[in-house]
Structure formats: C-alpha cells, structure tokens
C-alpha cells in the first residue's frame, strides 16, 4: 500500500468545483418523489386554495371589501373572532389547570380522565354539536337552554378545542425538573412564588402555542356550531356557517372573499405559533 505521493504532483491542479463529475444537488430518486409529492399536494391543497384567494380578488379590492363587509358577513366574522378569542382565553386558563391536575395531582380515575381528553379530536364535529344540544338544548335535563344563543356557540367551540392547550402544556410540565422547585423551596419560596417565578415562565410558550392552536381551530370551526347555533344571521351565525350558506346560494365570489379572510387569520395565527415555538425552543 502506498499513498501516491509520487503521482500527486503529476495530477492536474484542481480548481474548486471545476472538473470532475458534476454532482446533482439531489438524486433522481429524491427528485421523482419530490415531484410526485408536490404534484399531489398541488392538485389537492395548493391550487384549490390559490384559486379561492384569486377568485376573491379578481374583481378588485373594492369588491372584496364589499363582500366581506355585507352586514351578515361582517356580523358573522366579528362574532367568530370574538367568540374564538373568548374560547382561546378560557382554554388558556382551564387547559393549563387541567394539564396541571393531570400531571401533578393523583386521584383514582386519573388515567380515564387523561384518555377522554382526546375525545373531541376523535368525535365527529356534527356529533359534538348534537351531543351538546342534548344536554344544553330545549330538552335539557338541567333546564339550561343555550340553543340558538351565542353562549351555545362558545360552548361548542370550547368542546372542540378542549385538547389543544392541555396536550401542549402537559409534556412540558412533565419534563419540568422537580429539583428546581425543591431548590426554590429550600431557598424559602412559597408554593405560590414557586409557581409564579419558576413554573409559569417555563410553561408560557407551551400555553401560548396551545392557545394559538385552539384559536385557529375555533376560527375555522363549522360542524359543531351548525346545530346548536341555529344559524341565525346577525345573532349566532359564525363565519364558516355564513360561508356555507353563501356557497349554497351560489354566491361564490362572496364566499371566496370570506374564505380568504378566514385563511389569512389562520395563517397569521400559524405564523405566530411558529414564532412562539422558536421562542420556546430557545428558552428550553
């Protein structure tokens, strides 16, 4: 065996990236797979969504603005945003509390509680609406009738967004080291001070991303609100339901305008979420 020290001076000088086999940036296998994936994604998701946005704008911004601000559409959009914000806030508080109880508390049946948290993800939304209507509708055994009210809308949104904050906060809480809290306690911190100064700062990124997810979902929600809201324009009609009735009455341009607004709000929330996650990663 030899290192060709003798040969080396004879080999021509190489300029970086000069001669030799040109290397493709990625292999043909990758290119084929990528091509198929992008085509599939385009046909099903990207092109249709792009067409929606294009349709909403192709008659000019004025038309777009008028379509979004027709009284019923505007009422539906504001109701959706306000209700979603309320729902996100309730989730922020209740979700954190439930996550806390699931991680730190111990009581019989906790495993069952932990399992059913995901039920809203598994249950079809129309069933969710029907189920809520059974307990909080005209035939309520509790005597609480929220059918056709805004409170009913909020209730439905709370149901379908329940898991988000819990399932983002829970793992973070699980990973928090108990010794940090013990160290704080040994330094004389009260339980409330420990929560306020040690635990909460660690949880905030997860709490906020869970809340952002819940908000996005609430903005987009349709199925669960259909039955309980009664679909009353100006009162209980949320954006997705308003959009649905516009599609039913063949007002596609108006429908496209509302869709674009919904998409924009969802994308803004997702961007915010991405920022929150990076912030969380940096701190973690």
């Amino acid at each position: 065996m030899t290192t060709d020290t003798a040969r080396r001076p004879l080999s021509p000088p190489r300029t970086p990236g000069g001669e030799g086999r040109p290397r493709p940036r990625f292999s043909t296998g990758t290119a084929t797979g990528l091509g198929v994936a992008v085509l599939y994604l385009s046909l099903i998701v990207l092109i249709p969504l792009a067409v929606v946005v294009w349709r909403s704008l192709d008659q000019g911004p004025g038309f777009f603005w008028r379509a979004v601000t027709t009284p019923d559409a505007w009422a539906a959009l504001t109701l959706t945003v306000v209700a979603s914000a309320i729902v996100a806030l309730i989730n922020l508080v209740m979700g954190t509390i439930i996550a806390w109880v699931l991680v730190r508390d111990r009581f019989p049946g906790k495993a069952v509680v932990d399992t059913i948290i995901d039920l809203p993800f598994a249950l079809p939304t129309i069933v969710a609406g029907l189920v809520l209507l059974a307990l909080y509708g005209p035939e309520s055994p509790l005597g609480v009738n929220l059918a056709y009210t805004r409170a009913g809308v909020v209730l439905a949104l709370l149901f379908v967004t329940l898991p988000f904050v819990i399932r983002t906060v829970q793992p973070v809480l699980l990973e928090l080291d108990a010794d940090v809290e013990q160290a704080a306690a040994s330094l004389g911190a009260s339980p409330f001070q420990i929560f306020r100064r040690i635990i909460l700062p660690n949880l905030v990124p997860a709490m906020l991303s869970g809340t952002a997810l819940a908000f996005t979902r609430a903005i987009a929600e349709f199925g669960s609100t259909v039955l309980i809201s009664g679909n009353l324009p100006f009162k209980t009609q949320v954006a997705a339901v308003n959009l649905f009735s516009q599609i039913e009455s063949d007002n596609t341009t108006g429908a496209a305008a509302i869709s674009t607004v919904l998409l924009a709000v969802a994308l803004a929330a997702l961007l915010l979420l991405d920022l929150l996650q990076r912030w969380g990663n940096r701190r973690g």
Binding site: L41, A240, L263
Partner: peptide
Amino acid sequence: FIDLPMAVSPVVVGLALILV
C-alpha cells in the same frame, strides 16, 4: 404545506374544490 390543511376551515376546503 403539509400542515396547512389543519388551519383551513372545512367549508373553505369544500369551496376551494368546487372552484377547481
């Protein structure tokens, strides 16, 4: 893009497909 469908309202999905 893979995550995009999560953020889209089902009704918007329907409209988008009808438009294409």
